[in-house]
Amino acid sequence: MLKRLMITLILMGVCLSARSAPCIANSNVSINIEPRVITIGANYNGAQIVVKGSIPMDAEVVVQVKGDGHDTEFLKKGHVLGVLWMNTGSVTFHNLPQVYMVYLPESISISQLSSDPQLRQLKTGFVSLEQNTSITPEEKGERGFLFQELFKLKTTEGLYVEQEKAVTYQPANDGMKAFTCAINIPCKIKPGSYTITTSLLKNKTLFHSEESPIKITEIGFPAFITGLAFQHGTLYGVLATLIAIIAGLLMGVLFKGGKGGH
């Protein structure tokens, strides 16, 4: 009962705070995001968020999902003695978002985000992220390579996405058109708050932008396990070993019964 009440309060809190905040407003536009809260239960295996709405016929939509930035340390692999591949040092990316996803319509390509002077103003895409992220230690000529490997690692995990033709349009009435963008949330995304920024462009120039917070939260058994593991680590460890021992003994007893007094 108490748990249900807490979940309801969380959902209400998020819904109240999650109303889209327009950065650059245009009254002709409607944007809807569903769901705004993703709950992680015992059989959670990722989710999908759909951004849809109605925009002027000549407008284009770019959707970005971003998580909070943290300083993140990585191990660098390199050659030792000319033949062996091993960890040869570490590098820290400062204020690196845990999640970074960019979804583009058919008319805008990934390369245009960095090559087109007007689209560069949007400051979105991997190239823009690279330009706005510092690393230490920064060795000469290594920066480009490190970011290339970072993007490879993060895209493999599904946490970084740069996708063309991901925003689709359908004709609507009164000089307006409907748009849809489906965002796949991989199960590796950590619980927390994320921001979806929906940018509308006319002639490659931004005329409307909305920031909408979304929340990913654990409920039920996963929430109980996380709470116990992080708040009562030793107790959790003792319980985990005890249950493992009991399971081992139980299996031993079961098998003894099966084979008839070995």
Binding site: F230, I243, A247, G248
Partner: peptide, 26 residues
Amino acid sequence: VTIMQAATNHTVDFMLALLLLLGSTI
């Protein structure tokens, strides 16, 4: 190792261990 890891690094996933040990004990 399990108790030390759980207490200091919080890296023991009991759900994962439980599934694995159901198979491994057999």
